[in-house]
Simulated scan of single mutants.
Amino acid sequence: MSVRVILPPSETKSDGGKGAPLDLDTLVFPELNPIRKQIGEALVALAADLDASCKALGLGRTQLAEVDRNAELWISLTRPAIERYTGVLYDAFDYASMTRATKAKVAGRVMIGSALFGVVGAGDLIPAYRLSGGSKLPGMRTIAATWKPELSHSLDAVDDFVVDLRSGVYHQLGPVRGAVTATVVTEQPDGSRSVVSHFNKHHKGLIARELVRTRRTVRDINALAAVLSDAGQRIEIDGPDRIVVVTD
């Protein structure tokens, strides 16, 4: 048994790529491909109607390029998922700075949640696209209803210690039985605490980074807390399946 980390996706994604167009059969959990194809085809069809795309995807007039990305879903170039997603969490994870050996561990330990794909492996080749977990495509159920319960079935079959760093709706697409989750809180001088999304994303990126860099075996929540504490994070264990990261 090893540790497996599930990251949330990001709305922002890098452009371009050098990989061949999307091939669903190369993605992890190929049993999910019928749902991936259904959602992908609906997304491409939606792209033919600019106004409907903006409404369904919550896009403003300055984001129309996102519709073009969706229109070219099956034909655009691809790149590894860990390089496709961008933003605060992925900046903290800092994949580009990792050694070749650590990047190899990323491929085996990291997965990324996705409204379109359910979940992908860090090394899976995917195109740029726009679809959020809270979206509802015309003629389909909500994204959450579309993925339940198939995504959970696939993730529950993973024979590893799972640290699920997805948040909100992406966690609900397919909860993992027995997975450990993480909450990041900011502690004020008076002892009061609050959840702040920016720090939440940043520290989850740091958590994932330490879990691919560590040489220690992480098979339970106590080992997880020890690795993160040794890396300088203030960690509290809150029950059998949740850690709390406390920041100033």
Results as ranks from 00 to 15, higher is better:
25 D>A: 14
25 D>E: 13
25 D>Q: 08
25 D>T: 13
26 T>F: 02
27 L>A: 02
27 L>F: 03
28 V>P: 13
29 F>K: 11
30 P>G: 07
31 E>F: 02
31 E>K: 14
33 N>Y: 01
33 N>M: 05
35 I>N: 02
35 I>A: 05
35 I>L: 13
35 I>P: 05
36 R>S: 05
37 K>R: 15
38 Q>P: 03
39 I>A: 08
39 I>Y: 10
41 E>M: 06
42 A>K: 15
43 L>M: 12
45 A>M: 09
45 A>D: 13
46 L>Y: 09
48 A>E: 14
49 D>G: 11
49 D>T: 12
51 D>E: 15
52 A>G: 07
53 S>Q: 03
53 S>V: 13
54 C>P: 00
54 C>G: 00
54 C>D: 00
54 C>R: 14
55 K>V: 12
55 K>Y: 10
57 L>H: 02
59 L>Q: 03
60 G>I: 08
60 G>T: 15
61 R>Y: 11
61 R>D: 15
62 T>K: 14
62 T>A: 14
63 Q>P: 05
64 L>H: 10
64 L>K: 15
64 L>Y: 11
66 E>N: 14
67 V>K: 10
68 D>M: 04
69 R>S: 05
71 A>S: 15
73 L>F: 15
73 L>S: 04
74 W>T: 08
74 W>V: 08
75 I>L: 13
76 S>I: 01
77 L>N: 12
77 L>H: 10
80 P>E: 09
81 A>L: 05
83 E>Y: 12
84 R>H: 08
84 R>E: 07
85 Y>V: 09
85 Y>K: 09
86 T>L: 01
86 T>I: 02
87 G>N: 07
90 Y>D: 09
92 A>L: 01
92 A>P: 05
93 F>Q: 09
94 D>N: 11
94 D>R: 03
95 Y>P: 04
96 A>T: 10
96 A>N: 06
97 S>L: 06
99 T>K: 11
100 R>H: 13
100 R>I: 14
101 A>W: 04
102 T>P: 05
102 T>E: 13
102 T>W: 01
102 T>C: 04
105 K>S: 09
106 V>P: 07
107 A>M: 11
107 A>R: 14
107 A>D: 14
109 R>L: 06
109 R>P: 04
109 R>Y: 03
110 V>Y: 00
112 I>S: 01
112 I>H: 01
112 I>L: 01
112 I>A: 03
112 I>G: 00
113 G>M: 02
114 S>Y: 01
114 S>I: 00
115 A>G: 04
115 A>I: 07
116 L>G: 02
117 F>T: 03
117 F>E: 03
118 G>H: 10
120 V>F: 06
120 V>Y: 02
121 G>Q: 00
121 G>Y: 01
121 G>D: 00
121 G>M: 00
122 A>N: 07
122 A>S: 07
124 D>K: 07
125 L>A: 10
126 I>M: 02
127 P>W: 12
127 P>L: 06
128 A>H: 02
129 Y>C: 08
130 R>M: 09
130 R>E: 11
130 R>H: 13
